[in-house]
């Protein structure tokens, strides 16, 4: 068995997420009744093209990690569809088949490795239980490829490695199943800056070498810009803006996206930030605001914003750049248009 064949052709997106929804009930009291609901992911749709890097950004509680876990079935969907290379999950392919093609690397490099397995066994584990040939040889090659000399490292345990080395093991383990899509959920966030740069270089090399597609989730906008082709911005369980990385960085359409970028440290001692772009903390996803979920913190908010939910719509002539804001839609009843507000 080798890598799964490309079935849909180059124009078929590798993964389509359609209207993903996941609410978590909160139970309390003597009878353990449901008292509230966390709207973790609420109608999220996007696609990932073959060979691209899709970055997902947002603050804590915006649902980026839940979205990642929904995509490989670590959390069950309440509603929605996952389509992998044209095959609908649950109809055309099983979860097990999906996971052959999609692997994940997590933030905590230590917690995601079995402390009782040597790193060679960890990397060889997937191929072994899937009955692939020569799992250990494969694992040794991969360890070598991620920069861990097998003769020195293969028989060490996770606690004998540094954070950067452990994250390299996790990357090797994800690649051992020869996936087509790798989901990197804050995979470099816990590393020191100097080590993070090494791992980013490695990820870029591996992508070219193995023809991989990445979904790269991070809160660090500089890192996302460096690695991504397209960027998806989430706020309280919803997509607020999606588009080519450079468009998102230079020409933000949604007021939340602009605030998020304005909150980045300026890196210029002569030109420091003087005013915080947003006041207060992100609201609790337990009872998200009505209409546009950003209206409680948005300086352009009007009555229409709390009354109706904006749809993701195309900005200007660029078919690939979409945002969910009433100011994009002249018919919404919002008194300002996107261009005026941007000036």
């Amino acid at each position: 068995m080798t890598r799964q064949e490309d079935r849909g052709g180059p124009r078929q997106p590798l993964l389509i997420a359609k209207d993903l929804k996941r609410h978590f009930p909160i139970r309390s009291g003597l009878l353990n009744r449901q008292t509230a609901t966390v709207h973790a992911v609420d109608g999220v749709s996007f696609d990932v093209k073959k060979g691209e890097v899709l970055g997902i950004v947002g603050e804590s509680g915006c649902g980026k990690s839940t979205t990642a876990r929904l995509m490989i079935g670590l959390i069950e969907l309440d509603d929605g569809q996952i389509i992998f290379d044209g095959d609908v999950l649950g109809e055309d392919i099983t979860l097990k088949e999906l996971r052959r093609g999609v692997q994940m690397v997590f933030q905590d490099s230590y917690a995601s490795l079995n402390p009782r397995l040597t790193i060679l066994d960890s990397v060889a584990f997937g191929p072994k239980i899937n009955g692939l040939e020569d799992p250990e040889g494969k694992a040794r090659n991969l360890l070598k490829r991620v920069g861990l000399e097998p003769d020195r490292f293969a028989h060490r345990y996770p606690h004998e490695l540094s954070g950067g080395q452990r994250q390299r093991v996790n990357i090797a383990r994800a690649l051992a199943m020869e996936p087509r899509l790798v989901i990197l959920d804050e995979a470099v966030s816990a590393l020191d800056k100097s080590v993070e740069a090494q791992v980013l270089n490695l990820l870029n090399e591996l992508r070219e070498e193995f023809g991989l597609t990445y979904i790269f989730i991070s809160h660090d906008l500089n890192v996302v810009r460096y690695i991504s082709d397209r960027v998806l911005v989430m706020y309280l369980g919803e997509v607020v803006e999606v588009g080519p990385a450079e468009a998102i960085y230079h020409n933000q359409a949604h007021p939340y996206t602009s605030s998020l970028f304005a909150a980045m440290p300026s890196m210029d001692p002569d030109n420091r930030t003087e005013e915080p772009p947003l006041a207060g903390d992100p609201p609790n996803p337990i009872n998200p605001p009505s209409g546009c979920r950003f209206h409680t913190r948005c300086k352009f908010a009007e009555s229409v914003c709390s009354a109706a939910k904006p749809k993701l719509s195309v900005i200007g002539g660029d078919e690939t750049h979409l945002a969910a804001c009433h100011m994009m839609d002249p018919a919404s009843g919002h008194s300002q248009s996107f261009r005026e507000a941007a000036e």
């Binding site: 080395q165 993070e196 740069a197 090494q198 980013l200 500089n222 810009r225 990385a245």
Partner: peptide, 20 residues
């Protein structure tokens, strides 16, 4: 350099090798 402020997308980063 590792802060990636203004790093060119896809270009190889000038990473410090090794660890502390």
């Amino acid at each position: 350099a590792a802060n990636l402020h203004g790093a060119v997308k896809g270009s190889r980063l000038d990473a410090i090798p090794g660890s502390p």
